[in-house]
Amino acid sequence: MRKLFALGLILPLLAACSQGRQVQNDEYGDDSKRSRVQGRLGGSDGILVFGTDRSQPAGGSQEGGALGVNAYLWRASLDTLSFLPLSSADPFGGVIITDWYSPPATPGERFRATAYVLGRQLRSDGVRVSIFRQEQRNGAWVDAPVAQSTNVDMENQILARARELRSQTASR
């Protein structure tokens, strides 16, 4: 018994020293009969009687909910492009535009990216990425070609991340 309580003492401390992901309440089991019904009448999880609704409608995590585009693809795009400084992001139009970024290893070139999430469904053709590249020549930045595979690779990275997010939700 004492060992178990010692474990109970250690776990929060271990958690405090580490970088973890916060587990949301809907990732824990719920033995109510209500939890076994798919979706909710009216779209939101319960009727809001006080406060401001910041949640997505039920099923929104799949369909996009309050977003104009698929939530998994949108979050995956933001995650994947997070190494670039963000210039603008429109969650309703599904457009992410980054600023220019020079990798430390190659200061003579810089990149920016534009990502379009094309719809509310999680589909392999639901995201398009365009990478732009410039090289520094004689003190000025000039456009340089980008291999077509770079765009495809980036799209695949986003799709893989979206699949991961979807699977995490499905296994709850």
């Binding site: 109510s32 209500r34 909710r40 319960g46 009727i47 809001l48 006080f50 406060g51």
Partner: peptide
């Protein structure tokens, strides 16, 4: 910060 929300959910079968 997010102000508290109160929701009422229900089930009938």
């Amino acid at each position: 910060q997010e102000a508290p929300t109160v929701r009422v959910g229900g089930y009938f079968r």
